[in-house]
């Protein structure tokens, strides 16, 4: 008869063991922004369905997006989208087997973080510029 009780093996070190590092935070942020976008796409679909439905529905949606609170939500949504897209570009680069040395990895993390904020602000400057 063989042993059926699981052996008490040591566990591998987990999150609380490691010092937080930029690359690790960026990995977590990529997942968080992905999950946020999962909910955020509802805004876009609400906007289109409302436009397809009726004037009242469309006005309600537009009122929300025009409100300061709606604007903040949209700002966060657009940042998450851009951040996740740039993060995705990093992953696609890594998939080719390139960009794994520490210097490049550090640089990519910074470029992703700063680039996403810069592009989001640029997008909103353009947005406010074209809005009648």
């Amino acid at each position: 008869m063989s042993e059926t009780k699981p052996a008490a093996r040591p566990l591998s070190p987990h999150l609380q063991i490691y010092r937080p590092m930029l690359t690790m935070m960026m990995s977590i942020l990529h997942r968080i922004t992905g999950a946020a976008l999962y909910a955020g796409i509802l805004l876009l679909i609400w906007w289109l369905v409302a436009a397809a439905r009726s004037d009242t529905a469309f006005d309600t949606a537009q009122a929300f997006f025009g409100h300061w609170f709606g604007r903040i939500v949209l700002f966060g949504f657009s940042w998450a989208l851009i951040h996740h897209a740039l993060g995705g570009l990093r992953h696609l680069l890594w998939d080719t087997g390139r960009g794994f040395d520490l210097k490049t990895v550090e640089w990519l993390a910074r470029a992703n973080l700063i680039g996403a904020i810069a592009l989001t602000i640029l997008l909103w400057v353009i947005g406010y510029g074209v809005m009648p």
Binding site: L44, D55, G127, V130, M131, P132
Partner: peptide
């Protein structure tokens, strides 16, 4: 899907920006 998303989402962002403040009729 990630690769497909890149140009398609870019188009989507462009579409939204181009229709900021647009009426329902203009959007349709």
């Amino acid at each position: 899907t990630a690769i497909a998303n890149l140009p398609l989402v870019l188009f989507m962002i462009g579409f939204v920006v181009a229709h900021l403040g647009a009426t329902r009729a203009e959007l349709a």
